[in-house]
Amino acid sequence: MAKSRIGGSETRLLSAAGIAAVCLLVAFLFLGVLPKEDPRVSTVRQIFFDISSPLIEIAGTPGRALTNTRHYFQELETAHNRNRVLEAQNIELRQRISELTRAEVLMQQYRKLLDLPNEPGLELINAAVIADVNSPFVHTIVTKGGRRQGIKPGQAVMGPNGLIGRVISSGASSARVLLLTDFNSHIPVVALSSDVQAILSGTNRPQPELQFLPRQADLKNGDLLVTSGRGGQIPMGLPVALVTRNEDDGNSDSGGDGGGDGDGAIAIQLLDDLARLNFVRIVKSQEVEAPPAEIQLSPTQRAQR
């Protein structure tokens, strides 16, 4: 009895192994035939997240509640010190507002002078993050809210402090966002202080890197990188990251002849912690009015020039 049972078991296992081999073959066939960016696969993914997002959201509720409670008590401990810091920041920000108001008036006058079209204001859509598809292979998130809320592929996505990625697909009730750290993310940026342009590319590591950076580029520690708006998909001027320089690397690279500000290896520090995103703001794209083919100056303007 036992023997026959063992014999039977072996036969069945062999059969299961054969079926497994066929499954393996089919899997490799899929890998060979269907590329990752195939539109049909992307549609299937979006449908999957549309269907599973309510379940994922409900399942994540206890974990989020636990995290929020932990943050609440952590913040209570530091509330007094934070209050002092915030008061100081408030005073500084009030000064900045008056400076910005003046700059805005000046910019409007310059625009009028150059007859430039008005840039549309940014319209933002708030969305909760419901899934976090981060692994050694991909860095994406899924947000609640899709086409019904006006979210479309290509739109820029902002965190609390700056750009964090862009929408790669949107379904009826969810949208997939490719984070800046993903290997497939490439965003044109410009350094605010030196006007140096480059492409910010993800590396699947926490810090992205700058590509196509001019050799003579003079990036300094603390330089702010903003979107350049090249390509027209992402509005210009959205803050993205800070440049940090590792001075030790700079000393060894340059033979120890300096090590001052701006001599080290360039590293990029994103403005937001992409592992702790709960809410994001999606920048609703708007059509920008095309500039006139040739700037027509009035006689008064010519005289002023």
Partner: peptide
């Protein structure tokens, strides 16, 4: 293998990676 395919879909991987 089917669950592997579902994992491919949910993890943004090429179809067949986790299935294999």
């Amino acid at each position: 293998a089917l669950l592997g395919l579902i994992n491919d879909v949910s993890n943004e991987m090429p179809l067949g990676f986790y299935a294999a």
